[in-house]
Design a protein around this nucleic acid. Structure first.
Lengths: 216, 216, 216, 216
DNA sequence: TATGAATGAGCCTTCATTCAT
DNA sequence: AATGAATGAAGGCTCATTCAT
């Protein structure tokens, strides 16, 4: 019985792991169940058995990836409680970049989620509600603080929203645009130097936010 | 005979137009030759006949789209010669946003290219060399001017590159992240209000660039 | 141990009951072991364990259904011993209609058998020998009596056979043709009004048999 | 070009012919596209190309079968204009039996339609409206005449309907119940002797209808 | 030159059955 | 005795591409 559960868990986990890699590399459509099962050392029926169908497997992979991602890189990783808004912003950006540019072993997690953001799917809706929304709310708080907005004021200023988009857009671009980036970047630039990118985006964003604040 | 060639040319054009719409909407894999030919009013063999295969059609569409896009929205659209760097940046951003968010009738051009940037394909390499590179060089000049860098100095500062990425990333995000954006945006925000977005990104970027300049 | 056997027996019975409903509703091919086991609250291996395979389950269901059916609706239900041939015919028809059109809770028995009659399967042969044949013999006796044939005469007159077919055909048609019937029937007609149908078929058949008898 | 059309027509026709046989023999579910294409000497994609999908092929087969059937065996085949109601009834029954019991080369047509009547499918609805309804109306007229009903009277007497069911049921039973029939029939009876069956059902039905008429 | 019928590899999915526990 | 995870053959369907005309 111990063995049964272990086998069960193993097969499911191996399937998720393999599917994550393939989905991240090739996208939902191009990824085939056969390729995934082959990589996982399972049979074609295994996906149907464990996840009902391809969509089910995909949803499971997304969920797993995001859970893992947030657990490993919480948005406020390594911050003191009384950290300044600037420090919070930097921590958020670093955490976000780590998640999408990867460094740990299963480095497909962030890539998969970003691909999903671009591609759109039904599984996205649930993920947004459960995962993205809280992340966005947290970022919005930081930006509101930097903008000097009244935290008890009305929700969803366009201003705050646009600044959040600017921050997120800079980060995401290093993944979504990586094919272009790798072709026009200066030779000295290492696309995986997350600390360097973090510093730049943080500084750039602080300047941007300050400009927005002073202008209004 | 004149008629034949004309029909031929018409068919080719109609195929490119139809393929552009379908590719932009559904991506390369999901787009089928049959759907494209149906929309173009052509027969199923037409694609293979005129473009050898699906890839060939796709390459033709990409080429056409970029040429059309740059012709309609040149990066310095509507600028006086002696415009300031700030004005040039704003014109560049507006032009870029128009291209990827669309407004004219065949508004699929930019979307297609952006999709291509994210998706990666063999046709990308040629396009980068022919189209993206010049655009990037132009943006880099503007930023160098704003940063106060010596135009005769060494090429490809990391600093300039990162600032360019920050500008482009903010713009692209409004397209690539549109699925997420539409879910977390405040109700008052219109994702297609290009002027509003242009103003924000310009201001934010000027603030960011200034911060980078002053800090270094 | 008592408990085990009881559970076993229960599971078998529940499987037969569930399988009967599903087979009757969806036919042999469309019915899946998983659907049956789910309805029976059993595990997927139970069918193979208790009945060897799907065919075995089906045979068991058929057997059970016919036994139950005849027990609940004997062909001479409610008749005095000295009943006339006309009364026997009416009782036979009513009993037969009840069996195939159902009225009690497990009303799938007759429907299943009828479906089997139309569909054909290997399990049919045994059922015919055990169940249909006696029923037919009984009906033939009634008809022979109505035709005035010598009971000690030669078996299997074509005449008697054809009359039996006419009687059975009229009854069966209300089940086998129910999809058509429901579309062309007058609004006032209730396809489940077994007494009405019984009266009609009895009268119609008596007229038919008399005509056959007089003509020969 | 002549050849093209011929090939085209041939492939479609061969597919319909093959599908008809397989559907009639094995039913919709058990019939596989691969079996049908193999018999037709076509490839698996042919069904999709010509009929969109399995359902489309099935609908085409049904349509073809019924059209052929009615054309070859019109309900009033070989009747003088001033034929009596009895003669019309006999012609109707013979025509109907020929259609469902077959005798010509593609003898699967009627069998297929009857199977459809029992099985039910979405394609049935259209067929009922187009084909069965007119047939039923014609039969009803004959029966109304035999019953002595006022032709200008109210439509859809239950009485007429039940008599029509009795006639149709007797005919259909020789097909739907053929598996049983072949096991309990007397040796002397030939299940394909349509003239004999026609005579019996006609006589039996005339007796039945008369009985109904006189009783009311 | 232009057509569209025909091809067939490959996809996702279903399902009865097996087998280790 | 009973379980349910795992198997793999087979099904319907899609689709880019070919080829005779």
């Amino acid at each position: 019985m111990r063995n049964t559960q272990q086998n069960n868990g193993d097969a499911k986990d191996r399937l998720i792991e393999a599917a994550g890699v393939i989905f991240a590399e090739q996208g939902y459509r191009s990824a085939t169940i056969r390729k995934i099962c082959q990589r996982a050392g399972a049979h074609v029926g295994a996906v149907n058995y464990h996840f009902r169908d391809k969509q089910g497997l995909f949803a499971a992979v997304l969920e797993h990836a995001h859970a893992w991602s947030v657990r490993k890189y919480p948005p406020d990783l390594g911050l003191r409680n009384e950290a300044s808004a600037e420090e919070k912003l930097q921590a958020f950006i670093r955490s976000f970049l780590f998640r999408i540019l990867g460094d740990g072993v299963p480095d497909w997690h962030g890539r998969l989620i970003v691909r999903e953001i671009v591609e759109h799917s039904d599984a996205l809706d649930r993920m947004v509600k459960n995962s993205i929304q809280p992340l966005y709310v947290y970022l919005k708080e930081i930006i509101d603080e930097l903008l000097g907005n009244d935290p008890a004021g009305p929700d969803h200023h366009e201003q705050t929203f646009l600044c959040a988009m600017s921050v997120l857009g800079q980060c995401l671009n290093h993944f979504t645009g990586r094919n272009i980036v790798s072709r026009i970047k200066p030779d000295s630039f290492d696309p995986m130097d997350i600390e360097l990118i973090t510093d730049h985006i943080t500084r750039f964003s602080l300047g941007g936010i300050r400009m927005i604040r002073d202008r209004t």
